[in-house]
Nucleic acid binder design. Structure first.
Lengths: 372, 372
DNA sequence: CCAAATAATTCAACCACTAAACAAATCGAC
DNA sequence: GTCGATTTGTTTAGTGGTTGAATTATTTGG
């Protein structure tokens, strides 16, 4: 949790921070930890941890495990774990040829998943989002039957997003669409807070969740277009206006093929879905050149290729790595790791659902206020 | 101030944060504010502000102005301002053909400046840093005669830095040099904490200080090599290992001129100091292509050209802007602002000195602990 | 069955902030 | 000039949250 530097801090902020600290310690422990273990891990006293855990249990975020995990001598510890039947996130995704909905609980487990394959362009923004909202409503109903409480909705869109507004989604043909408002038009979702974000950003979060270990990487999403999400220290870097990661339009060959964006030689023309399908020989080199730029500029140690790149990964790998070795200034000091994503097409929906519960996990105090 | 999410927060952290909040409010006010004004600006009560200000005054960071600023009815307010005779930062810079030292006080004013022009390569790292240390010692002595207390040293180096270690400084011919240790070898500086950072990063901070208003920009430094510093929300983005901003080695023409880094077509070959001096016609286009990549990836709204680019700015401007319009995907939604730096060659030293006092301003509690 | 060990809770003390009352210092009106 | 209005700054009691030490709870092993 980060505290805005321009805001005053009171004791309640201390509690809010420490609640998050305890919750995340419970979440990230390999085995269900005791209060004493949480105390040792966080540096808070056992007294404080007990008080905080009481709040978290009362708020339904943490549960005491029933069969206390076996230990040595002494009073047996009560194992703590995130509640599976607590708040959950509803992730929604719209793309050119499908709709998807997904519910993830506090523990990160996928509890519901729905998909509908169909071309979304004819329906227009209003029609497509209404259909997606209905799909989301089904997912919500099924999740609530399982005892979950949907905390919010996050929507993944293949386009440039400012707040709730989709400024441009070229492949869908959308412009200045208030996606959150259209989604809330579906009565079953009207009561939920809605966040809209770029598909690649959310897919990067999805990958972060499952790949876990490495909190610094660039996720490259190959859909119809190519986008990227930058994850630094476990946080998404969104850019000043939320338009970061447009790697698809990084120039690779200055006088190369014309792109539909109006420029020449964009990466998308050499490594987009069509180029990949056509077994384009330049794809690996083009990716390598663009990715080298990213590493030179951002110093990210790991690159994850996702979406449509996954099935082509082995074919592309050597070519990309050769360019990285040649063009990344620091390649000699520390090699760049390249790997295929663990999640396939479902990365963005999962990441969206995950983004919702991330907020609960980062600010449990806010959730407790909401529910009390 | 940012609170690490993995650390517990206690009441003392609250005080530390609020001390910084008050100090920065005083620093950023146009006119010397009263305690009441600080209270209104921060949201803290007047009682709390009074207590915090007492600490800051006792620690020599803030002073009550003598002639109380005229107001209307009511008890006259005591104006608060940063102490000019308090902690100060010592900035040092080494580059291929000069050494520089600079002292900046809490208010941001330059209090001392020393420069020595000479080729630094023959002396080697130890010799050059000893000379720089002596220059710094002179600056320190002069500053202390003015009543300043040097809080620390920051060293700007044209190369890749990890912690105190200069991994590679190609133009100086350095490799794996413990610059901080060598600098502390000068007895007059041995008691000071030393930070080492990349020259472009620190120059970006220098520019941030003087240009003030815009907290999001990319600073491009044209020295012998080309580097860049990314400032987002007033903070330097250093990358995972501190190697961000190597824009000089972004590929512009994949099969272009060979670069001394081993790759082909690096920006540095088309817009480096020699290319600029030779009135290279490709410089603007090359810069435009590389900068477009930065904006597409990072979504920075402002680009500042510094160092050797400043005298050539008007000649380059149109060419760069044309490429930005063409190649930045979001150029239609929000234009990219391009401007010349306000500081010239002294940006890095000033930024270095500034980086030291930035730390004091961001963590006044730490400074108070040190001095008490 | 008791000692040792470990887990969790209780309670007094402390620290930092808030809110409200109070003291200080000026202006303007009569 | 003196007095009320006004604004600044301080004082004081109260509250929320953490600490540390003492206490209670529950097990294992001799």
């Amino acid at each position: 949790m980060t505290t805005r530097s321009s805001a005053p801090v009171r004791q309640s902020s201390v509690r809010a921070h420490n609640l998050a600290l305890v919750l995340n310690t419970v979440a990230n422990s390999a085995d269900p930890p005791s209060r004493a273990a949480v105390s040792a891990a966080t540096g808070l006293t056992r007294a404080t941890v007990s008080a905080l855990v009481d709040d978290l249990i009362a708020g339904g975020l943490v549960t005491e495990l029933d069969p206390p995990p076996r230990t040595g001598a002494g009073r047996p510890a009560a194992g703590l774990a995130l509640t599976a039947a607590g708040p959950a996130g509803l992730g929604l995704e719209i793309n050119v040829d499908y709709l998807a909905a997904c519910v993830v609980d506090l523990t990160g487990a996928v509890r519901q998943r729905f998909t509908e394959h169909a071309d979304q362009r004819p329906a227009g923004a209003a029609g497509a989002l209404a259909a997606l909202g209905r799909l989301g409503a089904r997912a919500r109903l099924a999740a609530e039957a399982d005892g979950l409480v949907i905390a919010g909705v996050a929507l993944a869109v293949p386009g440039l997003v400012s707040g709730d507004l989709v400024r441009v989604a070229p492949n869908l043909g959308w412009q200045n669409t208030d996606a959150a408002a259209l989604l809330r038009g579906v009565p079953e979702l009207a009561d939920l807070p809605v966040a809209v974000d770029n598909e690649a950003n959310l897919a990067a979060l999805g990958e972060l969740r499952v790949a876990g270990a490495n909190p610094d990487f660039l996720y490259v999403s190959g859909e119809i277009g190519i986008g990227a999400g930058v994850v630094i220290d476990g946080e998404l870097y969104r850019g000043v206006r939320g338009w970061s990661g447009e790697i698809g339009h990084v120039t690779v060959y200055p006088d190369g093929r014309p792109c539909r964006c109006g420029a020449n030689g964009c990466l998308e023309q050499y490594a987009g879905q069509e180029a990949l399908a056509a077994d384009e020989p330049l794809a690996a080199a083009a990716l390598g050149i663009a990715l080298s730029a990213v590493v030179n500029l951002l110093d990210v140690p790991v690159i994850v290729l996702g979406g449509a790149f996954v099935p082509h990964f082995e074919r592309l790998r050597d070519g990309i790595e050769a360019e990285l070795r040649r063009r990344v200034l620091t390649a000699g000091l520390a090699p760049v790791t390249l790997r295929a994503a663990s999640l396939g097409a479902e990365a963005a929906v999962r990441g969206a659902a995950d983004a919702v519960i991330r907020e609960v996990r980062e600010d449990p105090a806010g959730w407790l206020r909401r529910t009390s």
